[in-house]
Design a protein around this nucleic acid. Structure first.
Lengths: 206, 206
DNA sequence: ATATTTTTTGACTATATGGTCAAGTATTGT
DNA sequence: ACAATACTTGACCATATAGTCAAAAAATAT
C-alpha cells in the first residue's frame, strides 16, 4: 500500500499516478478552490476512479497540501534572487519580470495561491508568517539601504513588494477579466511586461 | 409567500430578514466562495434556520446572484467618475484613491468579486464582457486623448487600469498576506494611499 | 510458469448538502 | 377579539461527497 509511503523507492506506476493526480488536482483546485472541488472532479480529470485517487493520497486535503508545498518551494525563488550587490533598479525590474514570467507560465499555481489566501490562508499561514515575512523583511532592508544610498527613489519597500505581487499575479488570477476587457484576443502578457517595466523604472528612479 | 415576490410592498420582517441573510451570506461567500459555502453556514451566521433562509430566497444561487448584482451596481462607480474635462493626473489619482477607499470600506465585496473571477466569472461574465469592457474602453480612449495631448506619459491605458485594479483590490483580497508580512499590526491602508498616489503620479507625469 | 505484491474498482457506508413540507407561532388586518 | 396572512422550523427527502473494503486484475519478482 503506497499511501503515506516514505521509505520504499516509489514504483513506476506510483510515480506516474501521483503526477497525474497532482496535475489534475491543480487544474481543479485552481478553478474551484479547496472547498469547491471534489475528489470526483479530480478523478474525472485524471481519468482514474475515486478509490484509486485515495489509494495514492490519504485524503483530499493531502493532495491539496502536497500542491501547496510544491508551490511554496518555488514561489519565493524570484524574491530570494534579489541581490544587494546588484544594480537596484535592474534588480527590482528583474524581479518584476521574473514574477510576471511565473504568472504567465504557472497561472494555475498563482490561482491556487490566490484561492488559498482568499480563504484566509488556512493551510499556509505558518509559511506566510514565517518564510515569506522574514524574506520580505530581509529584502525590504536591502531596498531601504539602496534608498539611503540615494540609488532608489524614497518609497516604502513593503508597498513596493505588495504592488509588484499585485500587478504581476493579477494577470494570472484575474485572467478572464483582463482578456475580456481587452477583448481583442491578444495575449495580455505581451504588453504587460513593457508596461510594468516602465512603470517601476519610472517610479524607482531616484 | 415572499419568495420571488416582485409586486407587493415588502413587509418589515422581509426587509429585516433579507438584509440579515445578505449580510451573513456576504461574510460566508467572501471567505469561501460560492461552491465552498453552504446554506447552513449562512443560516448559522444569520442566526436563522435553513428553511427560513429558503423562505426568503429561492436557493443558494439566488442569494449569491443578489449579492453580485448589488456589488456590480457600485463596483464601476469610480470608473464612471473619471472626467475627460478634468486634470488628467488628478482624475487618475482620484480614481486610484476611490478604488483604494472601496477596498478599505468594502473588503468582503472585493473578495466576493475576486472569488467570482477566480472561478472564471461564471455568474458575471456578461457584465464583464459588457458594461465593464465598454466602460473601460471608453475611459481608455479618454486616457489616450490625454496622452496624445501631451498631458500624460505615454503608457498603455488598459494596463494602467489593470494595475490600478490590482494594486488597490490587493489590499482587500490578499489582506491576510499583507498584514502578516507587515507584521506590526499597522493598517496597511494608511500607508498604501500615499505610496500608490506617488507611484502613479510619478509614472503618469508626461 | 508461478508466486507475490501492487494496483484497481464496483459496491458500499456515513455524513453533508440543497431543498421541501406541514404544522405551529407570530404578525397584521378588520 | 378574531380572522387572515406571514413567518418559522423540526422532520424529512434526494442527492452529493469523502472515504472504505474486499476481491479481481495487473505488474513484478523469482
Amino acid at each position: 500500500m503506497p499511501r503515506s509511503q516514505t521509505t520504499k523507492k516509489p514504483t513506476r506506476i506510483q510515480r506516474e499516478k501521483t503526477q497525474a493526480i497532482l496535475e489534475a488536482a491543480l487544474d481543479v483546485f485552481s478553478d474551484f478552490g479547496f472547498r469547491g472541488s471534489t475528489i470526483d472532479m479530480i478523478a474525472a480529470r485524471a481519468g482514474l476512479s475515486k478509490p484509486n485517487i485515495l489509494y495514492y493520497f490519504d485524503n483530499k486535503e493531502a493532495i491539496h497540501k502536497t500542491l501547496l508545498a510544491e508551490l511554496l518551494q518555488t514561489w519565493l525563488d524570484p524574491l530570494h534572487q534579489i541581490d544587494e550587490a546588484g544594480d537596484p533598479i535592474e534588480e527590482i525590474c528583474g524581479y518584476v519580470a521574473q514574477k510576471l514570467k511565473m504568472a504567465r507560465e504557472f497561472p494555475r499555481e498563482s490561482k491556487l495561491f490566490a484561492n488559498e489566501i482568499l480563504q484566509g490562508a488556512p493551510h499556509i499561514l505558518p509559511e506566510i508568517e514565517g518564510e515569506l515575512k522574514e524574506l520580505t523583511s530581509l529584502k525590504a532592508k536591502v531596498v531601504k539601504s539602496w534608498i539611503t544610498a540615494g540609488k532608489l527613489a524614497d518609497i516604502d519597500p513593503y508597498h513596493l513588494f505588495f504592488s509588484i505581487w499585485a500587478t504581476t499575479q493579477h494577470y494570472a488570477d484575474f485572467d478572464i477579466q483582463v482578456r475580456s476587457v481587452l477583448g481583442d484576443g491578444s495575449d495580455p502578457f505581451d504588453t504587460a511586461g513593457p508596461f510594468l517595466d516602465k512603470m517601476y523604472r519610472t517610479m524607482l528612479r531616484p
